[in-house]
């Protein structure tokens, strides 16, 4: 059952200290900035954040890091031209980092959401990122055993959501949203438009509402 929250603060209520939080977005595209701002106000701390990047500029994920709420980041690409908040925390030893190849990051969350216990993946074989991991040769090709990444909470951005929780996205802002929605115990989506059931073409729904617990509309009047 999906609930429609009136405010982002209501949407993020109950996120616990120490939670693993999956945060959508690729750079700023698809990043749920309103939910992250609400999480900063809510106060949960000692978080493990799973996201593709480790924050850009001063807003969104970077603001959560700057507020000192994050113990560890699991991501594929922390270092960017505008990742100075993360860079300072990392260099001063105030944040842990696990670097994961981008496709493994997505597939490990997909596995969590799909009930897969682990999977053998060819990515990273023979590299430092496979150190200490079980390997197996299957039909002559080498693979590394990769474990699921599960979230306590997923915070994602989408274009529109209906009262059943069905979501559609916009262009490359889709990125990690659909996978993260499946991989967390509680999935919270900020959307540009909340619409009535029936307003989304059932053939075009990207994230079925079964994965979505709370929706909040931000930045626009509710339809």
């Amino acid at each position: 059952m999906t609930t429609i929250a009136d405010t982002a603060a209501e949407a993020v209520a109950g996120i616990a200290d120490g939670a693993t939080v999956l945060i959508g977005g690729f750079g700023m595209a698809g990043m749920p900035v309103a939910l992250i701002d609400a999480l900063i106000d809510q106060g949960a701390t000692d978080l493990t954040v799973v996201s593709n990047n480790a924050g850009n500029g001063d807003t969104g994920l970077a603001a959560l890091l700057a507020a000192g709420r994050v113990r560890k980041v699991i991501c594929s690409f922390p270092r960017q031209s505008d990742s100075y908040v993360f860079d300072d925390l990392y260099r001063s030893g105030r944040i842990d980092l696990e670097v994961v190849p981008q496709g493994n990051l997505a597939e490990r969350m997909r596995a969590a959401g799909a009930g897969i216990g682990a999977f053998f993946c060819p990515t990273g074989v023979g590299t430092p990122l496979a150190d200490g991991k079980e390997t197996r040769t299957i039909d002559g090709r080498d693979y590394v055993l990769e474990l699921p990444i599960r979230g306590d909470v997923a915070l994602i951005g989408a274009h529109a959501g209906d009262r059943m929780g069905n979501l559609v996205y916009r262009k490359t802002a889709r990125n990690f949203g659909p996978v993260m929605a499946t991989a967390a115990a509680t999935t919270i989506a900020q959307v540009t438009h909340v619409v009535e059931a029936g307003d989304l073409d059932p053939e075009a729904v990207v994230t079925p509402g079964i994965y979505v617990d709370r929706i909040v509309q931000v930045g626009q009047e509710r339809a």
Binding site: S76, P78, Q80, R91, V100, P101, Q102, G103, T123
Partner: peptide, 21 residues
């Protein structure tokens, strides 16, 4: 993806996936 320098922040992105894919 990484020079291995002690002060470098490792960042791999999609490079390993592309390389084998």
């Amino acid at each position: 993806w990484h020079t291995g320098a002690p002060d470098a922040i490792p960042a791999v992105g999609g490079a390993m996936d592309l390389a084998i894919g």
